[in-house]
Design a protein around this nucleic acid. Structure first.
Lengths: 180, 180
DNA sequence: CTGAATTTTCAGTAATTTGTGAAAATTGTA
DNA sequence: TACAATTTTCACAAATTACTGAAAATTCAG
């Protein structure tokens, strides 16, 4: 499959960024071409578009599946599998946040909890535990938030993000509201 | 410098996680030992605590400085430089979010803007541009948010995060509030 | 200004991560 | 069930990234 110059340059950029996100270059490129192309693509098309080996595509797709980032399609009379990204960009963002939290926060949260269970052996450990507690509480709050986010509709999420600087004002008047 | 068993295991964990965050193993370990130790540390102490070369520590400190994650101290009568982390965990979190945004979103935002300026050469490019527009708008909102966050006090940030599921309710009544 | 203490740089090496082709496994249709 | 199409796995190779020691640069007390 040939890709346009515009897509090509975007794909290259997403490749470079891929490693800064939890992915890697190929994964970034693969997801870029999938997201930016309207029709679902099969593995051979991706392999050709990005000039990477068929097996690399297979491994990349496996990983994108584990991130819940792609949808699987079947075309009647064609045995190949076709892949596309959700058409709702908010759904993609939501998935990314949740999956990154799983990979980046959950394991640490568990380690921090373990450390808090231990008996401090001296006063240096006591300081350490205090910091661990602070980190733990913060990360737990972030986790609650991402869970909240997961259940939010795209419309609501978009409305929330659009608040922008308004959020500060809302916090100021929040106590005046009858919540809970 | 010797570190306790508790710190040791936390340092190892943060090392493993380091690569999942935008850092790397050594950087994760270095920051862990700095955050978890009350007294500011000098480069030799870090080098000894983590069993890594002095030059590696120097490069790591350089990077932590570029992330604005460490504070520099001087001890009277000692020519060495000592480093510590902010005592306020929210300040660390705020810095992390802002710095990651700089590295993970800003370059992409600029590339997306470039792509939007181009003339679509066919209808496939038109679809691509539509998706680019969606991504661009979303990322711009996130940028606004992190800017907002940067200016927020730790107390306010903590209050916002504590809202947790309350945020949904607030959104529901937001229109009833006289904002702006 | 001098020189010892300290920090930084950098070229080379080590370690890790990523990509490939060939072979194995799976799938679905005739 | 048989077999061709397709996908996945995996050992090895290639590429990238991280680490080190030695040397250069910087800092500052005397």
């Amino acid at each position: 499959m040939k890709i346009t110059a515009m897509t090509q340059s975007l794909v290259l950029h997403f490749g470079e960024m891929g490693s800064r996100w939890g992915l890697n270059r190929t994964l970034g490129q693969m997801y870029a071409v999938i997201v930016l192309t309207e029709a679902p693509l099969n593995a051979d098309q991706i392999s050709e578009a990005l000039q990477i080996s068929r097996s690399n595509v297979s491994m990349g797709l496996k990983e994108l599946k584990s991130w819940n980032l792609i949808k699987l399609h079947h075309i009647p009379g064609d045995r190949k599998e076709y892949f596309s990204a959700p058409s709702d960009i908010w759904e993609i963002a939501r998935t990314l946040v949740v999956e990154r939290r799983k990979r980046e926060l959950d394991p640490t949260l568990s380690t921090l909890r373990d450390a808090l269970m231990e008996q401090p052996s001296n006063e240096s450990d006591e300081y350490t535990q205090m910091r661990v507690k602070q980190m733990h509480d913060l990360m737990e709050m972030v986790t609650l938030w991402t869970n909240e986010m997961q259940g939010m509709s795209s419309e609501k999420l978009s409305a929330l993000l659009k608040l922008g600087e308004g959020i500060s004002k809302i916090l100021d008047v929040k106590d005046k509201l009858l919540l809970r």
